[in-house]
């Protein structure tokens, strides 16, 4: 069996979501080749070659792949697909955009966001915002799979795979990049952070969210998350959203501040190793999943916690 793993990277470096998806790929079993597509991707390609379990790194270095537009990237993956039984990627925004396009071009039904590899063709995946887990067997000869990375440990370094250039598959020009507005921050990235401090609707305003959550996150060296309610209310940007419709995270420590614990939020963080909840409502559902619960006024408790660290 040969497996093609689509790398998530920013050119210079490889996202650890790639290393996590590699663990899932290795469980399926077979030679894993990592595809690093982008412009100026030497750093990411070198990092992929060092991962243990990678047999080969394919590099598609071309301007057409610089902004990860779905159409040229899907055509590239399809052009390489003949040699592979499985095409797999971490379920990042960019892979969620491109992989179903690849699947349809190959006439394959994709298996989205697997959380467990049962066997080479059978996988577990969450449905209904994680309120049920489905075991599915993929009957297509070729498999197209995305991986919920919070469910897999990162593959370690220790490999020295060969790096090989592959040619561009062209660009039909169906879409064009205009601009990125990425939040620049010194904080760790949400999906790979060891500690996350998340705020909910109880913060009451964007100003209070900034004033209360950010200093605590900075003290912890943590990434900042938010509930969907806080995002909907405009207290926090959407890319901070943790939950079924946002990001699914599994840090070592998750601190939920003023978050009631709606089902859809729990789906995004319940695999965290340790959960701390601070909420004034002692009946809040968040306490049913929290390892340590603190009942009280967050505006008083959070600054106190920040000082105590």
């Amino acid at each position: 069996m040969a497996i093609l793993l689509l790398a998530e990277h920013d050119g210079a470096s490889l996202s650890d979501q790639t290393a996590k998806a590699l663990t899932a790929a290795s469980k399926i079993g077979g030679d894993v080749h990592v595809l690093v597509a982008g412009a100026s991707v030497q750093g990411a390609a070198d990092a992929a070659a060092k991962l243990s379990g990678v047999a080969k790194v394919l590099v598609a270095d071309a301007a057409d792949y610089a902004n990860r537009l779905a159409e040229p990237l899907a055509d590239l993956i399809v052009s390489l697909s003949g040699a592979y039984d499985v095409i797999i990627a971490p379920a990042t925004a960019s892979a969620k955009n491109v992989m179903p396009r690849v699947a349809a071009l190959l006439d394959v039904m994709q298996v989205s966001e697997i959380i467990e590899v049962v066997s080479a063709d059978t996988f577990k995946r969450p449905i209904y915002a994680g309120n049920a887990i489905q075991t599915v067997q993929a009957t297509d000869a070729k498999k197209v799979i995305t991986v919920r990375t919070a469910s897999f440990a990162a593959a370690p370094e220790g490999g020295s795979a060969a790096i090989e250039a592959v040619s561009s598959a062209g660009n039909a020009g169906l879409s064009a990049f205009v601009e990125d507005a990425l939040s620049s921050s010194d904080r760790p990235e949400l999906t790979s952070a060891k500690i996350i401090v998340s705020g909910g609707r109880a913060l009451g305003s964007s100003e209070k969210f900034q004033e209360v959550i950010l200093p605590l996150a900075d003290k912890f060296g943590a990434a900042v998350g938010a509930s969907r309610a806080a995002v909907d209310a405009g207290y926090a940007p959407n890319d901070w959203q943790v939950g079924q419709t946002g990001k699914v995270v599994a840090p070592d420590l998750y601190v939920a501040v003023g978050i009631s614990g709606a089902i859809q939020h729990l789906a995004g963080m319940k695999d965290s190793k340790v959960i701390v909840a601070i909420n004034k409502d002692e009946e809040a559902p968040i306490f049913q999943v929290a390892d340590y619960g603190l009942v009280g006024d967050l505006f008083q408790l959070v600054p106190e916690l920040e000082k105590a660290l």
């Binding site: 394959v108 039904m109 298996v111 059978t122 969450p126 449905i127 994680g130 309120n131 049920a132 887990i133 489905q134 075991t135 599915v136 067997q137 993929a138 009957t139 297509d140 319940k270 959960i275 002692e282 306490f287 049913q288 999943v289 929290a290 390892d291 340590y292 619960g293 603190l294 009942v295």
Partner: peptide, 20 residues
């Protein structure tokens, strides 16, 4: 269907911890 659903189950639960 191309995906055969073998089983649907409840997710693994998480127990409530302690209140401090």
């Amino acid at each position: 269907p191309r995906l055969k659903v073998l089983k649907t189950e409840e997710p693994g639960g998480r127990k409530a911890g302690i209140k401090v």
